[in-house]
Design a protein around this nucleic acid. Structure first.
Lengths: 167, 167
DNA sequence: TTGGAATGTCAACAAGGCTGACGTATTGTC
DNA sequence: GACAATACGTCAGCCTTGTTGACATTCCAA
């Protein structure tokens, strides 16, 4: 299992020690905490959680999407999503309209108030990401994105790719 | 708030459209799912969750650490940590020993069985990370790490840095 | 037209966060 | 030596967000 580095930590070829991999794992852990910290503060003020954030984000991203589609993107059960969706609808942030072609479906869109919340959350999160990008430099940003994309499951990457065009 | 790109998506200077930032946010979301997917499967078999994983990981990382120290690394309350720690101790994965210098403290270490679980989890997670690194290339890896590190809060980065040497 | 599949809703439960209160052992200070 | 502070454990109860089970509605195909 554990590697015995023949030379040292190579830079041209990809030789990775357990320590390097472990450090990468920890970087993900701590960075994800930072990544969610700012939106969490905003959400708390309104009594929402991360689940609400995710729902709002992806509805904004794909206006008119169905509950089923949102389900597969978020990777949760419909019952779980339904709870947060119900709250958002009752609070007037999300609009749920019966489908015209298939009346079993509900098409979800953000109201003006929902869009405002999305903007507040997105701005907070983008600000941190912009600062990180600025600190790390353009090449680092490209590397960051390509490692993250390679880390997704295939099914996730398909959904990730399907969301609008590539940055 | 929204930007009006004067030229296009620049590559030499760091000019970032809302779309690019949004794509970065989504990359974090989907990648983190992939990042936790493999360990989650292993944990489920044994009736553990991510909280147990985190505890085991950082005890392995800092053998003999105190409960208080672990608390500040994980960023949870002692009541929360105590629940998972109690389970791990009862199951014989973690050893809790009264401190010699300060007998109020408990020093935590992994038993052989605990170390075995850590290895299984770490191998699963490292494998995916290694594949992602290999797919993205050495320069991407460096960029990945530097963006993640820039995204942490200062207090988190201090703890991240304190964990062994730099990869 | 009827039975099965798909979509979405309601109810109940579990994991794992949280706060608050409290007990105990130990340390360090006045 | 008395006493406050520290480190840890625990009980009780709450919230979010995941889960499964049961069920109503709607569509479609046999």
């Amino acid at each position: 299992m554990s590697q015995t580095p023949s030379k040292a930590s190579g830079e041209s070829l990809l030789f990775l020690t357990d320590e390097q991999l472990r450090k990468g794992i920890e970087a993900m852990f701590f960075a994800y905490r930072g990544f969610t910290a700012d939106p969490d503060r905003i959400l708390e003020e309104r009594g929402y959680g991360r689940a609400h954030h995710r729902a709002v984000h992806f509805i904004r991203r794909s206006p008119g999407t169905t509950v089923n589609n949102l389900l597969s993107i978020l990777g949760v059960t419909k019952q779980s999503l339904n709870r947060v969706l119900r709250a958002l609808i009752e609070d007037g942030l999300v609009l749920s309209e019966v489908g015209t072609r298939d009346r079993r479906e509900r098409h979800l869109t953000l109201t003006a108030e929902g869009a405002a919340l999305d903007r507040a959350l997105s701005d907070a999160q983008s600000h941190r990401m912009r600062m990180a990008y600025k600190a790390a430099g353009p090449e680092a940003v490209a590397g960051f994105r390509s490692v993250l994309e390679a880390m997704m499951d295939d099914t996730m990457r398909a959904q990730y790719d399907a969301l609008k065009d590539r940055g």
